[in-house]
């Protein structure tokens, strides 16, 4: 079991399989692309506070819950135990990347693993602050309130306003929400760049396993 060069699980000496999966399981793929599309459209396409924005936020929350649950009960390579956060191993991996000698890991490589945890932490912050901003209202309640305001019943607005300290909390949440959302976009750009660099270094298409796997002749 003891790997001579690294204690990172699945570094080849200890691992049964010597390469990342040729096709990630459906839960990993669906949550990956679902979160990617929802985050991008919430950041770039729709207006904050709109029913669409809140609905997509709740969908991201559900996708995140499912992925984190899958990290506990999913198949080996989807589980947290296959890619624990380990900054030292990540640095070692990046050093290997610079020198051009890269190893295979049965799941995410240590640097990719850190990226996944950074994404999840930031997503948790964004959804949590979003919930504070809306007072935990579900999309259905948001839609009802908007319809009430539109029809001239402004009492919904008063309910939203709340007390003095609650609006202060809401302001702070808004600040954090925006910063974290921008951080998400930066992480996404880094993630895409990382996949590109790793694919070049490993001479392997790392995108295909996240889509439909290698097309066979």
């Amino acid at each position: 079991m003891a790997a001579p060069r690294s204690s990172y699980p699945g570094a080849i000496p200890a691992g049964r399989r010597d390469a990342p999966p040729s096709l990630w399981d459906p839960v990993v793929r669906i949550t990956h692309w679902g979160i990617a599309v929802s985050v991008l459209s919430n950041a770039l396409l729709n207006r904050g506070g709109s029913v669409t924005h809140v609905t997509l936020g709740w969908i991201v929350m559900a996708l995140l819950v499912l992925r984190l649950l899958w990290g506990l009960v999913g198949p080996d390579e989807a589980r947290f135990s296959a890619f624990p956060p380990n900054p030292l191993a990540a640095l070692a991996h990046l050093r290997e990347l610079v020198t051009g000698r890269v190893r295979d890991y049965p799941s995410h490589n240590p640097a990719g693993a850190l990226m996944a945890y950074a994404f999840w932490a930031t997503l948790l912050v964004v959804t949590a602050t979003g919930l504070v901003m809306t007072g935990g209202a579900t999309p259905m309640q948001v839609a009802n309130d908007k319809a009430a305001v539109a029809s001239g019943d402004w009492s919904a607005l008063i309910r939203e306003g709340g007390e003095e300290d609650e609006s202060e909390l809401s302001d702070a949440a808004k600040e954090v929400h925006e910063v974290a959302a921008n951080l998400l976009l930066i992480l996404a750009a880094l993630h895409v760049a990382g996949v590109f660099v790793e694919s070049r270094a490993m001479r392997r298409n790392l995108v295909a396993p996240m889509v439909l796997g290698e097309r066979k002749k």
């Binding site: 839960v27 669906i30 499912l66």
Partner: peptide, 8 residues
């Protein structure tokens, strides 16, 4: 998986 997602 899709069923599990809808459920979630």
């Amino acid at each position: 998986s899709i069923f599990l997602l809808v459920q979630t």
